Amino acid sequence: MTETALPEPTPEQAALFARVRRMMLIASLTTAVAVAAVLVAVGYRLFRSEGSAGRAAAATEITATLPKNARIVSTAVAGDRLVVTLDVGGSTEIRTFDAQTLRPAGTLKFAREP
């Protein structure tokens, strides 16, 4: 059998081949960086969700003391906060707690003008 001889590329063709190789290298590196970023993001999410699941499994027991003659009107969850509405002697008070740790996050008191 006879082999087909490939002629040497012209200088223009060689420059075109070099340019195509360079563009393919850039595209390959960009793809590799994108895939690595996705893998890092997925790994971070998995690691972070395992940590929060472990914390949620532990039972927490806290006793919150209320003012005298206070009663709980309502409770709600807003994002990562637990919201408790109290009626304290005729005035309304809202207390917020961190939903994960149940530590107090803030108090909002309402008073009537005289």
Rank of each mutant, 00 (worst) to 15 (best):
E8T: 14
P67Q: 05
L82R: 09
R55Y: 01
A57N: 08
R95E: 02
A58E: 15
S74L: 09
S52K: 11
R112N: 06
R48Q: 05
A37R: 06
L66G: 01
G54W: 13
P9S: 03
R19A: 11
A37Y: 05
S28C: 06
Q13H: 09
R95C: 02
A76I: 03
V40Y: 06
A32K: 10
R22M: 07
R81W: 02
R112F: 03
A37K: 04
A32T: 12
R81F: 03
V33P: 02
L86A: 06
F97C: 06
F97T: 00
V88I: 14
I62G: 00
V38E: 02
R21M: 09
T4A: 04
I26F: 09
G51C: 02
A36C: 08
A58C: 02
T92F: 00
R21D: 13
A59Y: 08
S91C: 00
A64E: 11
T31H: 11
A53G: 01
I94T: 15
Q13N: 03
G89V: 05
A5S: 07
P104E: 04
T4Y: 06
T30K: 13
T31S: 12
V77Q: 14
E93C: 01
F47V: 09
S28T: 14
T31G: 09
E50Q: 13
P67W: 02
R55A: 12
R22P: 03
T101W: 02
A58I: 14
F17V: 04
E3C: 00
A41W: 08
Q13I: 12
R55P: 02
E8R: 13
T75S: 10
D80Y: 06
G89H: 03
T107A: 10
D98W: 08
A18H: 10
S28L: 14
T85M: 09
E3K: 13
I62M: 05
T85I: 08
M24I: 07
A105R: 14
L66F: 03
G54A: 13
T2D: 06
A14R: 15
P114N: 10
V33R: 11
L102V: 01
P104M: 02
A36H: 03
R19N: 05
V42Y: 01
A111R: 11
A14S: 10
L6M: 08
A57S: 14
L66A: 03
A27C: 05
R48N: 09
A32N: 04
T75K: 12
V33D: 00
G106L: 11
S74A: 15
M24V: 01
T31F: 12
R55L: 15
